[in-house]
Design a protein around this nucleic acid. Structure first.
Lengths: 203, 203
DNA sequence: ACGCCTAAACTGACCGGTCGGTCGATCCCG
DNA sequence: CGGGATCGACCGACCGGTCAGTTTAGGCGT
């Protein structure tokens, strides 16, 4: 029955991360109990502390893992496009798509990781900076290439991220509006905000 | 010497709220110790529990107080304007202005109130809804009046709030960019995002 | 004017449950 | 049989909340 034998350390680590994701996303960092993660992962306190130095790091591992995933998706999407503004558009879509596909990790990264101590806040700022830079680079290129007018691309990039985050958070909690609807309205709106109307103008 | 006598209950309550704002904004909800609020307010544990039923409610009192303040400012700004889009613009400016003026309350409301339990999350959703509705109403009127094209005003309103929140949060932590710079770039950008260019077009 | 009484306001020592983290025992693969 | 991996009973610091008691303000009868 209990097929507990023969479990690689790798799989144990994964099971812990899975359970942690589940518990953290439901309860939030502080209300998440290690004992609950133990139960859900079918491991033990000791095992968790063998693989992670403490609760904080376990949590950060989750955040980092998801941030890396999203960044990878975005970079791939960008690489596929030829022009700066096409890259920007693809980046926005990829980002929203990733958040939409993974509700729980999104919740952990965007919500649960907020309002905890200094350590967490620094990680958040770092991740935001990573994504913002990703967008800003091509926004700047688009300006240089004359695809859009000159603007404060630093502010724009953060504003865009804020829109994406906020709508995603709302969707995570209320289930509304659906990701597809968000993309449909938000992406054109953001492009419009820098006065960019690709090829065909809106109907 | 110690002019501790003659303190109205009102002033005590205020002192507790002041101290709580200071401690919560620096430490976040969970790392904030009641004992620290006691020390900073020069009162006592019992006094806090005389004025507030528990830590949670004390915190929520702060959040509500600030949300009410911002809402009041926004409503006043709106009342001063004649046309729908002028109201929308004024609302955005008033909102940013209020956040910019009160750094600590902004931090508490936008950051520290996040990722706590269900109770807090509901309060957040409620406040967001209040602000979003405030904007959406006049956005809808603007559409009806033909000032802007038809759009998904629900998504737009939340996206705008997200931009404002996110830039404010960043400013709260890094001191950059300055509120004035945010307003200067963000407001025109948001108006542009619904293809609205008031009277004079940008240079 | 004066002491008496009550209630509101306030104090701070103390309690007790909670939960992240520890550690010695145990398992089992190579 | 060595040591990486796992287990889970146990520890004890920590902190929100309690409560018995003290102080203050003012109403009231005489």
């Amino acid at each position: 029955m209990t097929e507990k034998s023969v479990r690689s350390p790798e799989s144990t680590r994964e099971r812990i991360l899975d359970a942690a994701l589940s518990v953290f996303s439901n309860k939030g960092y502080h209300d998440a109990r290690l004992d609950e993660i133990v139960a859900e992962s079918d491991t033990s306190k000791g095992s968790i502390y063998f693989h992670f130095p403490n609760k904080e790091r376990l949590f950060l591992a989750l955040v980092e893992k998801f941030a890396d995933l999203v960044e990878r998706r975005v970079r791939e999407a960008i690489a596929r496009q030829p022009s700066p503004m096409a890259k920007v558009e693809a980046a926005l879509e990829a980002c929203l798509e990733a958040f939409g596909r993974y509700r729980r990790p999104a919740k952990v990264m965007l919500v649960q990781a907020t309002g905890l101590g200094t350590v967490f806040e620094e990680k958040r700022l770092e991740i935001n900076e990573r994504f913002a830079r990703l967008i800003r680079i091509y926004l700047d290129e688009a300006v240089a290439a004359g695809e859009i007018e000159a603007v404060d691309t630093d502010v724009i990039a953060y504003a865009w991220l804020g829109s994406i985050y906020h709508l995603t958070i709302r969707w995570v909690y209320t289930g509304e509006p659906e990701p597809s609807r968000i993309v449909k309205t938000l992406v054109p709106m953001l492009l419009q905000s820098v006065n960019y109307t690709k090829g065909q103008k809106g109907r």
